[in-house]
């Protein structure tokens, strides 16, 4: 019970931080890039979840509908927003050391949230390991960043149609 309360409080802190930083994220990235980044991150996570949870059976998700909804909300919205957080910091021209540190901090934060969910019993690993979450996000956050670069270059930079 004590662990559950700690987990919920920490999750609440993450949610408050997301809400508080929302305006700053829009200001730094722009609404179009922000929405695109969240959608891309969400797509990556949801598809990976399909593959890992259902195709490979590496995780056993809770059968409780509300716990399932909480997990889905995280994969579809909260984690992609947290990944985009990192992009708001790397978008302002940081050197490579700081960039790597931002990626590491982002991956650690999301892995921590996953750890809370596991502690609360929302998910049981059946072949998956906690450290894999960190590896997964250390790959996904730069990939999301790369997508934003491509998006800015090819979608926004070269935009121009017949109209």
């Amino acid at each position: 019970m004590f662990m559950l309360v700690i987990c919920l409080v920490l999750l609440l802190i993450v949610l408050v931080l997301v809400i508080l930083s929302w305006r700053a994220m829009i200001k730094r990235l722009g609404p179009v890039e922000l929405a695109a980044s969240i959608m891309f991150g969400s797509l990556m996570l949801q598809q990976l979840s399909y593959m890992l949870d259902y195709n490979l059976n590496l995780k056993d998700l809770s059968a409780e509908p509300w716990e399932m909804v909480a997990l889905r909300m995280n994969q579809a919205l909260l984690f992609p927003i947290m990944m985009t957080w990192c992009s708001t910091f790397t978008a302002v021209g940081v050197n490579w050391t700081n960039r790597v540190l931002i990626y590491l901090a982002g991956a650690a934060s999301i892995s921590l949230v996953m750890f809370f969910f596991k502690s609360m019993g929302f998910v049981h690993y059946t072949g998956w390991k906690g450290i894999y979450n960190f590896v997964q996000f250390i790959l996904f956050i730069p990939l999301n960043d790369l997508f934003l670069t491509f998006f800015r270059t090819y979608a926004l930079g070269r935009s121009g149609g017949a109209k």
Partner: peptide, 20 residues
């Protein structure tokens, strides 16, 4: 009729919507 961004967005958004 649309700039490139709209085509990118239509693909990204509907892929996202379908998966979601």
């Amino acid at each position: 009729r649309f700039p490139a961004i709209v085509i990118w967005y239509v693909f990204l958004f509907n892929y996202f919507l379908g998966v979601l």
